[in-house]
Each structure stands twice: as structure tokens, then as C-alpha cells.
Amino acid sequence: MNNNDAKKHSLQAAFEQVAQQQQTLISAIFPSADSEVIDEFDPRGMAIYRNNLLATAQQALAISFPTVLTLIGEGLFNYASRELLISSPPKHGDWALWGDDFPSLLTNLAQLSDYPFVADIAQVDRLRQQSMRAKNSVIEQASLQLLATHDIDEIYIELTTSQFGLNSNYPVIEFWLSHQQRVVSDTAEELNQKFIQQSLDKLVQGDFSQKVLIYRPYYNAEIRELSASEYAWLTLIKQGVSIGKALDIMTNNNELEHDFDFAQWIGIALEQNLINHLKV
């Protein structure tokens, strides 16, 4: 073995040995489903690391899922945070990216079996966070000229990456709105009650479903309801179908109400920062 090989071998051995030590410590810090922990260290020190992990996890999820926290309360929220640490430990080095699996964890939480809409509220919170971290974009105004120079069958729309769609069986917009009043006051309470009443009115409708758009006009992510036709339109555009072709498909779809007006939509889309640019 020459000098270089020996060095490489020694480095590899060092990595393996240290990896083993570090895995042992990590296993002792992370909460475990079977509560089996290996404890070689000062228990006071280990308690600090364990508490710190739980506290940071709860804090991170509270930032990403503020509405869920308000909805289910701190006790259950903290319990769910610990469960998420067990089932989906963080892997990015950026707590803001942790929590993709939180909505599905909430779906399966026995304590929430009577409140199935909470998981969809979690999706709204998650998508709003994603939207607010997405790349900034401003419409390329010049590309709008294509509408004057080309046939719409040849024109495609590149949507902004800060928008997300969601389909729910619950009136998530009204539920979500009813938990956004951070200041307790009679007016806020009145507003909350109004949204809750709207939610309940919608829930009694048979086969209820709601299509939701999360979008970001500037820095704050907004939320609004999509009609079935606009939802279908955005789906086609995201799939890379040209404007003309998408309009044809929608006209021929008998399941859609023919209430989609492209000229009107362009105005709204510009106002709400839905379009990045047009292209041929």
C-alpha cells in the first residue's frame, strides 16, 4: 500500500468510526416509536438536546402551520410534532422545509378522526408557505404582444411558480379564514362566526367539494376559490396545452359550465400575478 492509499484508507476508517459514534448519539436524541433509547451520556446534557429538538420542531411547525396550531391547540399540536419527528425526521438542514408529511400525519391521527378537514387546512398552510418562498416573478410585459401577433393556438402560458391548486371535500377557505383573526375583539369574533356559519352551510350540501387557488400577488400568499372551469383551465395550461387548444377542450367538455371568459381571466391573472410570460 503506497502513501496515498494508506491516507485514503485511514480517512475512510475515520469516517466510518465517527459515523458510528454520531449515529449512536442521534438515535439517543431523537424520540423513538418504541421508546428504546441508548443513553451513554450525562442525562442532564441529553435532556437538553432532546428538549431542544422537540422545542425547535414545534416552533418550526408552528411557523409553517399557524392555522393548524390555532385549530387544534398547543397540546395536540406538540404531540403531533413529536410524532412527525418519529415518522419523518428532518433531512434538509432548513426547518422551513420540514413538514411535507404533516398533513397526512394529521389525517391518520386518532384524536382528529372527527375533524377530517384539519389535514386539508394543513395543506393550505403548507402551500402558502411554499408560495411565499417561491421564486419572485413579474410578468414579462413584452410577451403579451404575442396575443396581437400570433394565433392563440400557437401561444402557451408559463404560469408563476408561486401558485398552487388544491381540491378539498370541505369548505377549507371558510374554515381557514375563520382562524386568521389574531386579535381578539368583538369584530374579529363576529367575522370568525360568519366564516364558520358559511362553512357549515356549505358542509350540509351533498357531495360538496371546493377548488382552491393559493397565489402570491406580491410577498403575501392569498387564497381564493376557483370555479370548476377555471380549475380545468389552469390544469390544462399547467399541462402545456396552448391557449386555443385549451379553450377548445373546455368548450367540448359537457361537464363544465361554459362560463369561462379568457379576456376576463387575463385581467385577473395579471392582477394576481398568475402569469410569468407567454410563449410560442
Partner: peptide, 22 residues
Amino acid sequence: SQLNGQQVHAGDLLPLAYSEQT
């Protein structure tokens, strides 16, 4: 590190053993 065979980030500044290998 690894936890149950998956990459994990501890979300904390964990101490090192002051050894030649580390």
C-alpha cells in the same frame, strides 16, 4: 447523520469527540 437507514438532520449543533478521527 443516519437514523433508521435514512439521512437525518439533527436540527441542532451536536458536539464532536475531540479525537484524531473526528
